[in-house]
Computed example of a mutant assay.
Amino acid sequence: MSATILLVEDEEILRSLLVEALSLLDIETAECMNADAAIPLLEGPNAFAFVITDISMPGTMDGLDLAKTIWARWPHLPVILSSGNRVVSHDQLPTNASFLRKPWTLDQLHQAVSKHLPK
């Protein structure tokens, strides 16, 4: 099933890798470099199946702040948080959120994404 997600990742190489990996799962991506750029996309006409965001990013908000904004404004929009230097336990997250630790494997990415794809 085709879906469109919002990918928020400041590292260009990792963002490109994620876009390529997600395309193998028939997932289209809108992408941006930080949470500040993500908010206008979320407020726009696009309907996203879910958001994948890095936690540590430059800008006025990090990925965790972005996730909290999403949960407050769009409570049904799933969020996958990802980080290599911060850990968020699953019991700290709403039911429609996940944590994906970097470095992840394609299998781990697929499992995290599959959980949030529309049925």
Rank of each mutant, 00 (worst) to 15 (best):
C32Y: 09
M33L: 09
M33G: 12
N34Q: 04
D36C: 11
A38W: 10
A38K: 06
I39S: 03
E43V: 13
P45R: 11
A47R: 11
F48Y: 12
A49V: 01
A49Q: 06
F50P: 03
I52C: 02
I52M: 12
D54Q: 05
I55S: 06
S56V: 12
M57K: 08
G59R: 06
M61Y: 01
I70G: 13
I70E: 15
W71P: 04
W71G: 15
W71Q: 13
R73T: 09
W74H: 15
W74V: 14
P75D: 09
P75H: 05
P75W: 01
H76P: 14
P78E: 01
V79E: 08
V79S: 07
V79Y: 08
V79M: 06
I80L: 00
S83H: 09
G84I: 14
N85P: 02
N85R: 14
R86V: 09
V88E: 15
V88G: 13
S89F: 15
H90C: 07
H90A: 14
N96F: 01
N96D: 05
N96Y: 04
F99T: 12
R101P: 04
P103Q: 00
W104E: 00
T105I: 01
T105P: 01
T105M: 06
D107H: 07
Q108L: 01
Q108V: 01
L109I: 11
L109N: 09
L109Y: 14
A112R: 06
K115V: 02
K115D: 05
K115L: 03
H116I: 00
